[in-house]
């Protein structure tokens, strides 16, 4: 079975007026929106710029807005957007500089992620679908020790939360939900009081946790259930507790 859909794709190059182009494509029943975008590129316009790599929600590169909502098109089924033959609108993320068409410049996001020292792997702590597992059974051939299973962090650094964030829209100096969520993860993982203090200092800033207006749009939009909004609330609590502690330690 095949689906016939029309894509309305945002087109832009520096120093040229932005426009939308329409492409009719045919994709298999099970296709995701990214497959449809790739078809438009393959069959209609080889100059269409879009980012993609893994096609399974792990690399985070393909994030765009579909009908106005931030999504990873690699896991957004085309059949969810079959609205009586209306075109599916594809636009780049907001709150990032546009490089061309659907491609945005994610440099700022990655520099902030780097500043947090966010390590994208962590020991497995949850069970597989409610079934307990012994997660300390790895061979670790390099060290001959038994080490815990590890897991990539949920955050794929896709930038969706930054695009959905109203604070980010008002002020690009805001550290942003992804970065603050990364800080919270690292605070959670570390036993080192100095590292913890450094991380909390990074978050305890006018452009850090205090800039957030608690719109919860980030949590709503995040495709990986990272819940940056709650992470920000948690950091605020920890920072406030630290202030009290300092106050009474005097």
């Amino acid at each position: 079975m095949a689906l016939n859909v029309t894509l309305k794709i945002f087109r832009y190059r520096p120093n040229q007026p932005a426009r939308c182009d329409t492409f009719d494509v045919t994709v298999p029943d099970a296709a995701n929106v990214l497959d449809a975008i790739e078809q438009a590129w393959d069959k209609h316009d080889r100059d269409l710029m879009f980012r993609h790599a893994c096609h399974h929600a792990s690399c985070g590169t393909c994030a765009v807005r579909i009908n106005g909502r931030e999504k990873l098109p690699c896991i957004a089924p085309v059949r969810d957007y079959l609205d009586g033959g209306k075109p599916i609108t594809i636009e780049p993320l907001r709150n990032f500089p546009i490089v061309g068409d659907l491609v945005v410049d994610v440099t700022g996001l990655f520099q902030r992620q780097e500043a947090t020292g966010f390590v994208i792997t962590r020991p497995t702590e949850d069970s597989l679908d409610g079934k307990r597992v012994d997660h300390t059974q790895c061979l670790a051939p390099a060290s001959a020790a038994i080490v815990p299973f590890n897991r990539f962090e949920n955050c794929v650094e896709c930038g969706i939360c930054l695009s959905a964030c109203p604070t980010m829209a008002a002020d690009d100096k805001f550290f942003g939900p992804a970065g603050l969520a990364a800080i919270q993860r690292e605070v959670d993982k570390t036993d080192d009081p100095n590292a913890r203090a450094r991380l909390l200092d990074l978050a305890d800033d006018e452009q850090g946790v205090w800039r957030c207006h608690s719109a919860w749009e980030c949590t709503e939009a995040c495709p990986q259930n990272v819940n940056p909004a709650e992470a920000i609330m948690d950091l605020r609590k920890q920072i406030t507790a630290r202030r009290f502690k300092k106050l009474f330690a005097r």
Binding site: F50, R51, H52, A53, C54, H55, S58, C59, T61, V103
Partner: peptide, 14 residues
């Protein structure tokens, strides 16, 4: 020509 790893590497079995 495209994004880094947008060829075979991106979509492989990992």
């Amino acid at each position: 020509r495209g994004e880094i790893a947008s060829g075979t590497t991106g979509r492989n079995h990992c």
